[in-house]
Every structure is written in structure tokens, then in C-alpha cells.
Design a binder for these strands. Sequence first.
DNA 1: GTCTATAAAGAGATAGAC
DNA 2: GTCTATCTCTTTATAGAC
Lengths: 315, 315
Amino acid sequence: MGIVERKSRQKQALRERILDAARRIVMREGFASLSMRKIADAIEYSPATLYLHFASRDEIAQALCAEGYAQLLETFVPLAQIADPAERLRALGRAYVAFGVAHPETYRLIFMEDPSYTGAALGGVAAASRAAVSGAAVMDADADADAGADAGAGAVGEASEITAAKTPAAGPPVSEKASLAPAKPDEDSGEAALHIMLCALEELKAAGRLSASMDVTVWAEAFWATLHGIVALNLTCPVFPSAPLDTVVGVALDAWLGTQNAGQPRGVTSASRARKKKSAETSVEPRVEPGTKPAIGAETNADTKPAAKPKAASA
Amino acid sequence: MGIVERKSRQKQALRERILDAARRIVMREGFASLSMRKIADAIEYSPATLYLHFASRDEIAQALCAEGYAQLLETFVPLAQIADPAERLRALGRAYVAFGVAHPETYRLIFMEDPSYTGAALGGVAAASRAAVSGAAVMDADADADAGADAGAGAVGEASEITAAKTPAAGPPVSEKASLAPAKPDEDSGEAALHIMLCALEELKAAGRLSASMDVTVWAEAFWATLHGIVALNLTCPVFPSAPLDTVVGVALDAWLGTQNAGQPRGVTSASRARKKKSAETSVEPRVEPGTKPAIGAETNADTKPAAKPKAASA
DNA sequence: GTCTATAAAGAGATAGAC
DNA sequence: GTCTATCTCTTTATAGAC
């Protein structure tokens, strides 16, 4: 029986190579210019071979999307343990923007390209959010969010392994993936990511720091829209952030979460912070260069913004 | 000389027909599937003819963008006269979202497609905004604004000229072009539209209703990003507004402009309004069906959301 | 499983006749 | 100015040899 297993492994390996190549092409040239031929060339196989592993270009795109959602979720998980819900939301917001800026083409693919891609991983999120809002008490949800549980450890530092483990398609080694659920790229990581935000919001409301009459889901969607707008404009509008992106994000967070700096991590008064914080601001997500002008943080494994325009198909 | 004029007119007419056809195709099938051949078929000319009027597909796209910006500006102009700056910003925000929802493919083309398209009409906006912030007093520009004159006929009244005036990059005296500025699609309507918002913001600050230390430009950009995010998610994310879009927009406006309903047009208290206003809400822009579930207002000349996915090029 | 070869469709853009 | 005809290039996807 070892033979079939080996073959299965080989097949799986080629599948991964295909996805790897596809991911690289998307990051380099944008999703629009991803083609079966390019993938085939990149992995030095014939185009026909790809169809033995994926039924169509679209299926590859879906797989890439799932990876993207998982990747985003990974940046969220370690932040889920921040105690203060407002501060946690701030961190999540910054991480979200940082993710979009660091992986422009991935973000584009996931959130700005095709409704069917965006919807695929978010299909049940509406239902999920409603469930969270209605029934479950504030904290019960993080039962599945084991990340936050043991995270009782230090600030952000400890949980990093958790996320590291859930890397993409860690497939074989993961054994019981249930415990590491958020890592699986083929799971609905998108919902999980939004769920983290929703939970923080619930706590915020429970703490009385959000109008009791406010519909949490609506608030969350509007908040998300703000973050998405910042990322999207940043990727699409060349003149968008005339000020450093950090500043814009800060203003937005202040608008949504109030100007209070209840949390400890930042030591600037809200008033002075609102205007020009380019210097003192320290972002929460790892590896952010505070002084960077336009980007929030981009060095790690970042998609390079394609020089070639991501148009449909130019001659 | 009448002959050359006639020929010029005919040439111009064909140019318009080309653009008309292109616009229809974009609205029906999305920009990605706009091709020279389709345009040629639509107007019953040969593809080669198109190249006598436009150097490339890209040039046609640029022209469509300019039209789109002008269209957006037109919806802004009548709102520019709303006296209270906060209320004006609310109206502008709602109009912006309504425009995006009513003309999804146009909005996509202008703000979500290619940076070069988005940047073309917004090139100088950063500089312009800075100029507005620094030098000119809040109201000074309305001297030369006759643009709103004919437009102002309708609903909101008299002051529309004010904003219309500041349309172009203010730099060279507006003189003759200013008169018809908002209508001309080939002018930088994009800047003008954003400028209207910027002015309202300046007034808001001048009225002391915005933190004096706040950088207006940053605030404006973040505010814009929120609106853009709402529209963009609405167009791209199938599950986005779980609540009526109106509600989400309302929450966002409350977050940015405070919860006060200083203006008169809406008769709901801010508290009750924030949660479920699907019924009582009356939007400011014309022709808005209050009861509509997902859309803010969509019947007039709306792009139909293409059934075919606006992907790159599917087989 | 993987290949070569190719079908079928579509794109942008141009040459040159009229 | 307009057309026909065509070049060149790209794409997804499949058939059938090996």
C-alpha cells in the first residue's frame, strides 16, 4: 500500500507546486494575468498537466483565495488575546490594513476582484455573525479560539507559534487539524477572521463602551468597510494617502473607537495623536517601520506591486 | 468653411457614438469585457474605424472615466449649497454611495480598476486640497461660479454655484472653462468633486465642530475611504450589507460626523436611527426609494450589474 | 501521468484598397 | 473615412500518443 500513498503524496506535491507558482505569478503580475500557460511554464510542465489537478483556472483562483484568507486570519489570531476590546479592535484594524498593503495582489484577489471569490470564503459569515450576536454570551465564542486561550502568555509574543503552525497547507503534519482549525487554508478562514472582530465588538458593547442600541453587526460592517476602503484606495488610487497611511488609519480608528487611549501600548495623548503621529506611533503588528512614508509594513513576504498594469489582457 | 465644420461635427458625432456604445457595454458586461470589436459591432462600423477616433482601447477607457467623474460631480453640485457643513457632508456621503450603487460598473471603472484610470482625473487633487486648506478662505471662491446657475434651478437652491466654482485646480483663473465646468467630461471633474467635500470640511473645522488640531486633508481622506469601502464592498462582497445599505451608511456618517442631527431633513433621533432605520430614513439625493432593501437608489440610468462575471477573459 | 499538438475563440492593432 | 483582410498574440481547454 505504500505505493499508492507515495503516488498520492507526489500528486499532492505537484498540486502544491502549481499553487506556489500561481501564487508567485499573482503576486508579481496580478491576478488578471494569471494563466494556465504561465503556471505550466513556471513549474516546467505542460499546460495539460494542470488540468489533472485543477479543473479550471477558476479552481486555482479559489484555492489561492482560501490561502489568502488563511493568511489574513493568521495575522489576526495573535491579536485576539489583547485584553481590552477597543485596543484589540485597533490592533486588528491596523493589522488588516497592514496585510492589505503588504500583500496587495493577494488582497486584490480576495476582496476586490470577483464577487464569487469574495463570497466563497465569506458565505456563512452573515449567519455566523448573527449567531454570535444573538445567542452566545460575550466570551463563549473563544472556546474555539484556542489561540486566545493559552495566549494568556505575554503580550503578542507567545502566540506567534500558534499562527506559525497554521501556515498554509501544512497538510500532513497537522494531524488533528481540528485543534488548529484556523490554519487550514481550505476552511472558511474568512469567516473566522471576521468572527474575531465580531467578538471584540461584542465585548466592547458588553463593556458599555458602545451604544447599547447599536446593532453590532452593522457597526462591524461599517468598520470593516472603513478599513477596506483605506486599503482599496491605497492600492488603486495613486494619490490616496497624501499623509502617511499610518496617520489615516489612526484617524479612522479614532473616529470609530473614540479618541480614548484606554490601552497601554501607546503613550501619546489622543489629541496630539490624532494629527501627526508619524513619529510616536507604534503599530501593533510585527515588523512595522514607523517612519515609513506610504506603507505600514511591507517587507515580509510582500507581494510586489506589479509594474505591469493588472489589466485584463493588454497587447 | 461650412464643409469642414460639417465634417468636424460628423467626426465628433461618431466619436460620441463610439463612447455611447462603449459605455453601454461597460455597464452591461463590465469593463473587462470591453473590446474594440464589440464597440465596432455595436455601432455597425469596422474595428479599424475606431482607431481613427481613438488611438487605443485605453484612450476610450480614459474618456469613459472622465465621463464618470463628471457624472459623479453632477450629483454633488446641487448638494454643495446645503448650508450646514455637517449636513452637507452627510448628503455628499449618501450621494456618493448612491452613485456607486446606482452605477456599479462605472464606479468600478473609475475607482476600482486601474490605478492609471483612477489617478488620471485625480492627479492634482492632493496639491489642490493642500492649497484649499492653507491659503484661500473658506468661502472666497464662489465669486466666479456661474456653473451652478442653471443647475441650481432644482431642489436645493441657490448656493450651488459656490462649489461649482472651485472645480478646477483653482490654479489658473477659472475664467471661461469654469462656467461649464461640471458638465464637461474632459475636465478634471474628479478633483472638483473631492474639492466640494474638502470645502465642507474646512467650514466644519472653521465652525469649531472639528478638532482644531485635525488635519483636514487626512480627515477627508479617511472619510472618503469609508464611503469608498462601503461602495466597494457592496459591489464585490456578496454578503456585505447584511443590514440595509442605508443603515450602514448612517452608522458610518454618525461615526464621522457625530450623532447629532442638526440638519432638518431627517426626523429620527440619532439613537433610534443608528440601529434600524430602514423605514424612516429619507436620503437626500433625488429619486431614492426609502424602502428598498439593499440599494440606496438605483433606478435612474443605472448600470445593470452584469450577470457575466467581470473577470479578465473567460472562455 | 505526462506529453505534443491543436482546436476554438478572442484580443489589439495595422496595411492598403477604395 | 471607411472598409476588408490580416497579422500577431493570447487565452482556456481537450484529444490522443506514449
